Amino acid sequence: MQAGLSAAYELDLWGRIRSGIQAEEFRAEASFYDYQSAAMTLSAEISMTWFQLLTAQKQLELTNQQIETNEDIIRLIRARFTSGQIRAVDILRQEQLLESTRDQKIFYETEVSLLQNQLAVLLGRPPQNENFITERNLPELPPLPNTGLPLELIRRRPDVQQAYNLVLAADREMAQAIRSKYPRLSFDLSAQARSNNYNNLFRDWAYTLAGNLVAPLLYGGRLRAEVDRTEALKNQQLYLYGQTVLTAFREVEDALIREQKQKERIEVLERRLDLAQKTNKQLRLEFLNGLSEYLDVLLSLDQEQQLQRDVLDARQTLLEHRISLYRTLAGGFETERTDSVEF
Protein backbone atom coordinates (compact mmCIF):
# COMPACT_ATOMS: atom_id res chain seq x y z
CA MET A 1 0.00 0.00 0.00
CA GLN A 2 1.37 3.46 -0.93
CA ALA A 3 -0.06 6.97 -0.51
CA GLY A 4 1.36 10.43 -1.24
CA LEU A 5 0.59 14.03 -0.31
CA SER A 6 2.08 17.34 -1.49
CA ALA A 7 1.26 20.97 -0.82
CA ALA A 8 2.89 24.34 -1.55
CA TYR A 9 2.32 27.67 0.18
CA GLU A 10 3.95 31.08 -0.18
CA LEU A 11 3.85 33.76 2.49
CA ASP A 12 2.81 37.06 0.90
CA LEU A 13 5.40 39.07 2.84
CA TRP A 14 5.53 42.08 0.49
CA GLY A 15 1.97 41.98 -0.94
CA ARG A 16 3.03 40.65 -4.37
CA ILE A 17 0.21 38.12 -4.60
CA ARG A 18 -2.30 40.61 -3.20
CA SER A 19 -1.30 43.16 -5.87
CA GLY A 20 -1.83 40.57 -8.60
CA ILE A 21 -5.29 39.76 -7.27
CA GLN A 22 -6.20 43.45 -7.11
CA ALA A 23 -5.02 43.95 -10.70
CA GLU A 24 -7.33 41.19 -11.92
CA GLU A 25 -10.23 42.62 -9.92
CA PHE A 26 -9.75 46.02 -11.56
CA ARG A 27 -9.57 44.37 -14.98
CA ALA A 28 -12.82 42.54 -14.28
CA GLU A 29 -14.40 45.86 -13.31
CA ALA A 30 -13.11 47.40 -16.54
CA SER A 31 -14.70 44.55 -18.51
CA PHE A 32 -18.04 45.28 -16.82
CA TYR A 33 -17.86 48.94 -17.88
CA ASP A 34 -16.92 47.82 -21.39
CA TYR A 35 -20.12 45.77 -21.39
CA GLN A 36 -22.04 48.87 -20.32
CA SER A 37 -20.54 50.86 -23.19
CA ALA A 38 -21.52 48.17 -25.68
CA ALA A 39 -25.07 48.05 -24.31
CA MET A 40 -25.42 51.83 -24.58
CA THR A 41 -24.08 51.77 -28.13
CA LEU A 42 -26.61 49.11 -29.09
CA SER A 43 -29.46 51.07 -27.49
CA ALA A 44 -28.46 54.21 -29.37
CA GLU A 45 -28.19 52.29 -32.65
CA ILE A 46 -31.66 50.79 -32.19
CA SER A 47 -33.15 54.21 -31.43
CA MET A 48 -31.53 55.85 -34.43
CA THR A 49 -32.61 53.05 -36.74
CA TRP A 50 -36.18 53.33 -35.44
CA PHE A 51 -36.34 57.07 -36.17
CA GLN A 52 -34.74 56.55 -39.57
CA LEU A 53 -37.41 53.96 -40.36
CA LEU A 54 -40.16 56.27 -39.15
CA THR A 55 -38.78 59.13 -41.25
CA ALA A 56 -38.45 56.93 -44.32
CA GLN A 57 -42.10 55.91 -43.91
CA LYS A 58 -43.13 59.57 -43.61
CA GLN A 59 -41.06 60.40 -46.69
CA LEU A 60 -42.82 57.61 -48.59
CA GLU A 61 -46.23 58.99 -47.60
CA LEU A 62 -45.14 62.49 -48.60
CA THR A 63 -43.84 61.22 -51.95
CA ASN A 64 -47.17 59.53 -52.69
CA GLN A 65 -48.94 62.82 -51.98
CA GLN A 66 -46.51 64.66 -54.28
CA ILE A 67 -47.12 62.10 -57.03
CA GLU A 68 -50.87 62.71 -56.79
CA THR A 69 -50.30 66.46 -56.93
CA ASN A 70 -48.06 66.19 -59.99
CA GLU A 71 -50.54 63.91 -61.76
CA ASP A 72 -53.35 66.39 -61.10
CA ILE A 73 -51.26 69.20 -62.53
CA ILE A 74 -50.49 67.16 -65.66
CA ARG A 75 -54.20 66.61 -66.24
CA LEU A 76 -54.79 70.32 -65.76
CA ILE A 77 -52.15 71.53 -68.19
CA ARG A 78 -53.11 68.91 -70.77
CA ALA A 79 -56.61 70.33 -70.73
CA ARG A 80 -55.16 73.81 -71.25
CA PHE A 81 -52.94 72.44 -74.01
CA THR A 82 -55.95 71.34 -76.07
CA SER A 83 -57.23 74.91 -75.95
CA GLY A 84 -53.86 76.23 -77.09
CA GLN A 85 -53.06 77.98 -73.80
CA ILE A 86 -49.90 76.00 -73.03
CA ARG A 87 -46.93 74.61 -74.91
CA ALA A 88 -46.16 70.90 -75.33
CA VAL A 89 -42.74 71.39 -73.72
CA ASP A 90 -44.45 72.38 -70.46
CA ILE A 91 -46.22 69.04 -70.39
CA LEU A 92 -42.92 67.28 -70.90
CA ARG A 93 -41.33 69.23 -68.09
CA GLN A 94 -44.16 68.35 -65.72
CA GLU A 95 -43.87 64.69 -66.71
CA GLN A 96 -40.15 64.85 -65.90
CA LEU A 97 -40.99 66.12 -62.43
CA LEU A 98 -43.55 63.33 -62.04
CA GLU A 99 -41.04 60.64 -63.00
CA SER A 100 -38.48 62.15 -60.67
CA THR A 101 -41.00 61.92 -57.84
CA ARG A 102 -41.73 58.30 -58.73
CA ASP A 103 -38.01 57.62 -58.58
CA GLN A 104 -37.99 59.11 -55.07
CA LYS A 105 -40.82 56.76 -54.14
CA ILE A 106 -38.78 53.70 -55.19
CA PHE A 107 -35.85 55.00 -53.15
CA TYR A 108 -37.93 55.39 -49.98
CA GLU A 109 -39.64 52.03 -50.48
CA THR A 110 -36.20 50.46 -50.56
CA GLU A 111 -35.13 52.41 -47.47
CA VAL A 112 -38.18 51.26 -45.51
CA SER A 113 -37.53 47.60 -46.30
CA LEU A 114 -33.80 47.81 -45.55
CA LEU A 115 -34.33 49.67 -42.28
CA GLN A 116 -36.94 47.14 -41.19
CA ASN A 117 -34.41 44.36 -41.78
CA GLN A 118 -31.71 46.30 -39.95
CA LEU A 119 -33.98 46.96 -36.98
CA ALA A 120 -35.01 43.31 -36.83
CA VAL A 121 -31.39 42.18 -36.64
CA LEU A 122 -30.60 44.76 -33.95
CA LEU A 123 -33.53 43.39 -31.94
CA GLY A 124 -32.33 39.83 -32.39
CA ARG A 125 -35.04 38.82 -34.84
CA PRO A 126 -34.75 37.32 -38.33
CA PRO A 127 -35.04 39.95 -41.08
CA GLN A 128 -38.40 39.01 -42.56
CA ASN A 129 -39.69 42.49 -43.40
CA GLU A 130 -41.67 42.83 -40.19
CA ASN A 131 -43.84 45.90 -39.91
CA PHE A 132 -42.47 47.89 -36.97
CA ILE A 133 -44.41 51.07 -37.72
CA THR A 134 -47.03 51.69 -35.05
CA GLU A 135 -46.61 55.46 -34.62
CA ARG A 136 -46.86 57.56 -37.78
CA ASN A 137 -45.43 60.83 -36.48
CA LEU A 138 -42.00 61.80 -35.25
CA PRO A 139 -42.11 62.53 -31.50
CA GLU A 140 -41.75 66.00 -30.09
CA LEU A 141 -38.29 66.69 -28.73
CA PRO A 142 -38.29 66.89 -24.91
CA PRO A 143 -36.41 69.68 -23.09
CA LEU A 144 -32.65 69.45 -22.87
CA PRO A 145 -31.42 67.23 -20.03
CA ASN A 146 -29.32 68.60 -17.21
CA THR A 147 -25.73 67.92 -18.19
CA GLY A 148 -24.52 68.29 -14.59
CA LEU A 149 -20.96 69.00 -13.46
CA PRO A 150 -17.91 67.62 -15.27
CA LEU A 151 -17.10 65.42 -12.26
CA GLU A 152 -20.55 63.81 -12.46
CA LEU A 153 -20.00 63.11 -16.15
CA ILE A 154 -16.73 61.33 -15.37
CA ARG A 155 -18.40 59.19 -12.75
CA ARG A 156 -21.25 57.98 -14.94
CA ARG A 157 -19.50 57.52 -18.29
CA PRO A 158 -18.71 53.78 -18.58
CA ASP A 159 -15.85 54.33 -21.03
CA VAL A 160 -14.21 56.74 -18.59
CA GLN A 161 -14.71 54.31 -15.73
CA GLN A 162 -13.26 51.52 -17.85
CA ALA A 163 -10.15 53.58 -18.60
CA TYR A 164 -9.83 54.48 -14.91
CA ASN A 165 -9.99 50.85 -13.81
CA LEU A 166 -7.38 49.92 -16.41
CA VAL A 167 -5.10 52.55 -14.86
CA LEU A 168 -5.64 51.00 -11.43
CA ALA A 169 -4.97 47.53 -12.83
CA ALA A 170 -1.75 48.71 -14.45
CA ASP A 171 -0.70 50.33 -11.17
CA ARG A 172 -1.26 47.06 -9.28
CA GLU A 173 0.67 45.13 -11.93
CA MET A 174 3.54 47.56 -11.52
CA ALA A 175 3.41 47.05 -7.74
CA GLN A 176 3.47 43.30 -8.31
CA ALA A 177 6.55 43.62 -10.51
CA ILE A 178 8.32 45.77 -7.91
CA ARG A 179 7.57 43.31 -5.12
CA SER A 180 8.77 40.42 -7.26
CA LYS A 181 12.29 41.84 -6.75
CA TYR A 182 12.11 40.96 -3.06
CA PRO A 183 12.88 37.48 -1.68
CA ARG A 184 10.04 35.02 -1.36
CA LEU A 185 9.28 32.66 1.47
CA SER A 186 7.47 29.54 0.33
CA PHE A 187 7.03 26.02 1.65
CA ASP A 188 6.79 22.78 -0.27
CA LEU A 189 5.48 19.91 1.83
CA SER A 190 5.49 16.39 0.54
CA ALA A 191 5.06 13.12 2.33
CA GLN A 192 4.98 9.49 1.30
CA ALA A 193 3.64 6.51 3.24
CA ARG A 194 4.43 2.87 2.55
CA SER A 195 3.39 0.16 5.08
CA ASN A 196 3.02 2.83 7.78
CA ASN A 197 6.59 4.21 7.25
CA TYR A 198 6.92 7.95 6.49
CA ASN A 199 9.92 9.19 4.53
CA ASN A 200 11.17 12.59 3.39
CA LEU A 201 8.70 14.59 5.50
CA PHE A 202 9.31 18.33 4.86
CA ARG A 203 11.63 17.41 1.99
CA ASP A 204 13.69 20.12 0.30
CA TRP A 205 12.51 22.95 2.53
CA ALA A 206 15.98 24.27 2.93
CA TYR A 207 16.67 24.11 -0.79
CA THR A 208 13.41 25.90 -1.63
CA LEU A 209 14.01 28.62 0.91
CA ALA A 210 17.56 29.21 -0.27
CA GLY A 211 16.47 29.34 -3.89
CA ASN A 212 13.76 31.93 -3.19
CA LEU A 213 16.22 34.11 -1.28
CA VAL A 214 18.92 33.99 -3.96
CA ALA A 215 16.66 34.21 -7.05
CA PRO A 216 16.24 38.05 -6.93
CA LEU A 217 20.02 38.39 -7.03
CA LEU A 218 20.42 36.06 -10.01
CA TYR A 219 17.52 37.55 -12.04
CA GLY A 220 17.81 41.15 -10.85
CA GLY A 221 18.23 42.61 -14.35
CA ARG A 222 15.20 40.82 -15.73
CA LEU A 223 13.07 41.83 -12.75
CA ARG A 224 14.11 45.49 -13.09
CA ALA A 225 13.24 45.37 -16.79
CA GLU A 226 9.82 43.99 -15.88
CA VAL A 227 9.29 46.92 -13.52
CA ASP A 228 10.21 49.36 -16.30
CA ARG A 229 7.82 47.63 -18.68
CA THR A 230 4.89 47.72 -16.26
CA GLU A 231 5.63 51.36 -15.43
CA ALA A 232 5.53 52.24 -19.14
CA LEU A 233 2.20 50.42 -19.50
CA LYS A 234 0.83 52.27 -16.48
CA ASN A 235 1.85 55.65 -17.95
CA GLN A 236 0.26 54.67 -21.24
CA GLN A 237 -3.02 53.79 -19.53
CA LEU A 238 -2.84 57.04 -17.56
CA TYR A 239 -2.47 59.08 -20.76
CA LEU A 240 -5.32 57.14 -22.38
CA TYR A 241 -7.49 57.87 -19.35
CA GLY A 242 -6.78 61.58 -19.61
CA GLN A 243 -7.59 61.52 -23.32
CA THR A 244 -10.83 59.63 -22.65
CA VAL A 245 -11.90 62.27 -20.14
CA LEU A 246 -11.19 65.11 -22.57
CA THR A 247 -13.03 63.26 -25.33
CA ALA A 248 -16.05 62.83 -23.05
CA PHE A 249 -16.18 66.58 -22.40
CA ARG A 250 -15.80 67.35 -26.10
CA GLU A 251 -18.55 64.92 -27.12
CA VAL A 252 -21.04 66.56 -24.75
CA GLU A 253 -20.20 70.04 -26.03
CA ASP A 254 -20.36 68.85 -29.64
CA ALA A 255 -23.78 67.26 -29.09
CA LEU A 256 -25.14 70.44 -27.52
CA ILE A 257 -23.81 72.59 -30.37
CA ARG A 258 -25.15 70.24 -33.06
CA GLU A 259 -28.61 70.20 -31.51
CA GLN A 260 -28.75 73.97 -31.15
CA LYS A 261 -27.61 74.57 -34.72
CA GLN A 262 -29.95 71.90 -36.06
CA LYS A 263 -32.89 73.63 -34.39
CA GLU A 264 -31.86 76.88 -36.06
CA ARG A 265 -31.59 75.09 -39.42
CA ILE A 266 -35.08 73.61 -39.02
CA GLU A 267 -36.47 77.07 -38.33
CA VAL A 268 -34.83 78.37 -41.52
CA LEU A 269 -36.11 75.41 -43.57
CA GLU A 270 -39.65 75.89 -42.26
CA ARG A 271 -39.55 79.59 -43.18
CA ARG A 272 -38.23 78.70 -46.63
CA LEU A 273 -40.98 76.10 -47.05
CA ASP A 274 -43.64 78.61 -46.01
CA LEU A 275 -42.29 81.13 -48.52
CA ALA A 276 -42.09 78.50 -51.26
CA GLN A 277 -45.72 77.49 -50.67
CA LYS A 278 -46.87 81.11 -50.85
CA THR A 279 -44.78 81.70 -53.96
CA ASN A 280 -46.10 78.57 -55.64
CA LYS A 281 -49.69 79.54 -54.86
CA GLN A 282 -49.16 83.02 -56.31
CA LEU A 283 -47.45 81.73 -59.45
CA ARG A 284 -50.31 79.29 -60.08
CA LEU A 285 -52.81 82.14 -59.92
CA GLU A 286 -50.71 84.19 -62.30
CA PHE A 287 -50.32 81.22 -64.63
CA LEU A 288 -54.08 80.59 -64.69
CA ASN A 289 -54.58 84.26 -65.54
CA GLY A 290 -51.93 84.11 -68.25
CA LEU A 291 -49.53 86.42 -66.41
CA SER A 292 -46.56 84.02 -65.98
CA GLU A 293 -44.86 81.14 -67.75
CA TYR A 294 -45.45 77.59 -66.60
CA LEU A 295 -41.69 77.09 -66.16
CA ASP A 296 -41.82 79.41 -63.16
CA VAL A 297 -44.64 77.32 -61.69
CA LEU A 298 -42.71 74.11 -62.31
CA LEU A 299 -39.53 75.35 -60.66
CA SER A 300 -41.47 76.65 -57.68
CA LEU A 301 -43.32 73.35 -57.30
CA ASP A 302 -40.10 71.35 -57.48
CA GLN A 303 -38.49 73.56 -54.84
CA GLU A 304 -41.50 73.26 -52.52
CA GLN A 305 -41.55 69.47 -52.71
CA GLN A 306 -37.80 69.25 -52.08
CA LEU A 307 -38.11 71.51 -49.05
CA GLN A 308 -40.86 69.28 -47.67
CA ARG A 309 -38.47 66.33 -47.82
CA ASP A 310 -35.61 68.40 -46.36
CA VAL A 311 -37.71 69.39 -43.33
CA LEU A 312 -38.45 65.74 -42.55
CA ASP A 313 -34.77 64.80 -42.86
CA ALA A 314 -33.78 67.73 -40.65
CA ARG A 315 -36.22 66.69 -37.92
CA GLN A 316 -34.86 63.15 -38.00
CA THR A 317 -31.31 64.51 -37.72
CA LEU A 318 -32.36 66.57 -34.70
CA LEU A 319 -33.63 63.43 -32.97
CA GLU A 320 -30.36 61.67 -33.75
CA HIS A 321 -28.43 64.55 -32.20
CA ARG A 322 -30.52 64.21 -29.05
CA ILE A 323 -29.79 60.46 -28.93
CA SER A 324 -26.09 61.27 -29.26
CA LEU A 325 -26.41 63.71 -26.36
CA TYR A 326 -28.07 61.09 -24.17
CA ARG A 327 -25.34 58.66 -25.10
CA THR A 328 -22.53 61.09 -24.26
CA LEU A 329 -24.16 61.88 -20.91
CA ALA A 330 -24.58 58.14 -20.21
CA GLY A 331 -27.66 58.72 -18.12
CA GLY A 332 -30.34 56.31 -16.97
CA PHE A 333 -28.37 53.12 -17.58
CA GLU A 334 -29.34 50.06 -15.55
CA THR A 335 -28.07 46.48 -15.54
CA GLU A 336 -28.75 43.33 -13.59
CA ARG A 337 -25.66 44.04 -11.54
CA THR A 338 -26.63 47.61 -10.64
CA ASP A 339 -30.33 47.80 -9.83
CA SER A 340 -30.35 51.57 -10.03
CA VAL A 341 -27.67 54.08 -10.85
CA GLU A 342 -28.19 57.74 -10.05
CA PHE A 343 -26.97 59.94 -12.87
Rank of each mutant, 00 (worst) to 15 (best):
R258E: 11
R258W: 13
E259N: 07
E259M: 11
Q260S: 14
K261A: 05
K261Q: 15
K261G: 03
K261P: 07
K263E: 08
K263I: 10
K263D: 08
E264L: 09
E264D: 13
E264V: 10
R265W: 08
R265D: 07
R265H: 13
R265S: 12
R265F: 09
E267L: 09
V268F: 07
V268Q: 11
E270G: 06
E270A: 06
R271L: 07
R271P: 08
R271W: 10
R271C: 06
R272M: 15
L273N: 03
L273K: 03
L273A: 05
L273H: 03
D274E: 13
D274W: 08
D274R: 14
L275Q: 14
L275M: 13
L275C: 09
L275F: 08
A276R: 03
Q277M: 10
Q277Y: 08
T279E: 05
N280P: 03
N280K: 06
K281Y: 10
K281V: 12
K281M: 13
Q282I: 08
Q282R: 07
Q282Y: 05
Q282D: 12
L283N: 03
L283R: 04
R284W: 13
E286N: 08
E286R: 06
E286Y: 05
E286S: 09
F287Y: 14
L288D: 15
L288Q: 12
L288H: 09
N289M: 03
S292R: 06
E293D: 15
E293Q: 14
Y294C: 04
Y294M: 04
D296M: 08
D296W: 05
D296Q: 14
D296C: 04
D296L: 09
L298T: 01
L299Q: 13
L299Y: 13
L299H: 09
S300E: 01
L301D: 03
D302N: 15
Q303S: 14
Q303Y: 13
Q303G: 12
E304H: 06
E304R: 13
E304A: 12
Q305Y: 06
Q306I: 15
Q306L: 14
Q306M: 15
L307N: 01
L307A: 03
L307Y: 02
L307E: 00
L307P: 02
Q308E: 08
Q308R: 08
R309M: 15
R309L: 15
R309T: 13
D310N: 10
D310W: 05
V311A: 04
V311Y: 01
L312H: 02
R315I: 05
R315C: 02
R315W: 01
R315E: 00
Q316C: 12
T317F: 09
L318I: 04
L318R: 07
E320P: 06
H321A: 11
R322V: 02
R322H: 04
R322D: 00
R322C: 02
I323T: 08
I323D: 01
S324L: 12
L325N: 03
L325F: 04
L325Y: 04
L325G: 01
Y326C: 06
R327I: 05
R327A: 04
R327K: 15
T328I: 07
L329P: 00
L329E: 01
G331F: 06
G331I: 13
G331Y: 06
G331E: 09
